[in-house]
C-alpha cells in the first residue's frame, strides 16, 4: 500500500518536473499542479500505515490513521487551489496580451544572445561567442 503510494508520488513528481520545463504556460501550470499532488501524496505517506478514518474519541488512538498529515494535506490542497486559480488568470491575461501561450524570453537573455550573435559575426572563426549561443 505504502509502496504504491510512494511510487505514485515519484511518478507525479517526475511528470510535474517534465511539464515544468516546457515553454508553454498551460503545461507549466499543469506541471505545478502535479507537483502539488505529488507533495500531498508524500504528506499522506508520511502519516504511516492507512487505517480507519480518524473520527471518534480518544479511545481509538492506535487503531485509526494519523489525522495530522491529512489536515496538513487538506490545507496544502486549499492553498494549491487558490494559487492555481491565480496562475490560470495570469496565463489567460498573458494570452490576451500576446495571443500566445509561450513564456517570452527574458530581456537580459535576449540582449546577451544578440551580443553573442554580433561577436560571432565580427569574428568568423569559431570562438567562445558561439559556445554562448549554443
Amino acid at each position: 500500500m505504502i509502496v504504491s503510494l510512494a511510487v505514485l508520488a515519484g511518478v507525479l513528481y517526475a511528470c510535474g518536473v517534465y511539464l515544468l520545463l516546457q515553454r508553454t504556460l498551460t503545461r507549466i501550470i499543469i506541471g505545478l499542479v502535479l507537483l502539488g499532488h505529488g507533495a500531498n501524496v508524500l504528506l499522506l505517506v508520511a502519516g504511516g500505515r492507512s487505517a480507519a478514518a480518524p473520527f471518534g474519541g480518544a479511545e481509538l488512538i492506535g487503531r485509526v490513521s494519523d489525522p495530522l498529515p491529512q489536515a496538513l494535506a487538506l490545507t496544502a490542497m486549499v492553498i494549491t487551489f487558490g494559487v492555481t486559480a491565480l496562475l490560470l488568470t495570469l496565463a489567460y491575461r498573458s494570452w490576451q496580451l500576446t495571443a500566445n501561450d509561450e513564456v517570452e524570453d527574458d530581456i537580459e537573455d535576449r540582449r546577451l544572445a544578440r551580443r553573442a550573435e554580433r561577436a560571432s559575426e565580427a569574428d568568423e572563426s569559431p570562438s567562445a561567442a558561439d559556445e554562448v549561443l549554443a
Partner: peptide, 18 residues
Amino acid sequence: VISLVASMLFLTAVALTY
C-alpha cells in the same frame, strides 16, 4: 512559477520531516 516550485519543495521537505 519560481516561488511555487520553491513552495512545492518546501511542502516536500515538510512531508519528509514529518
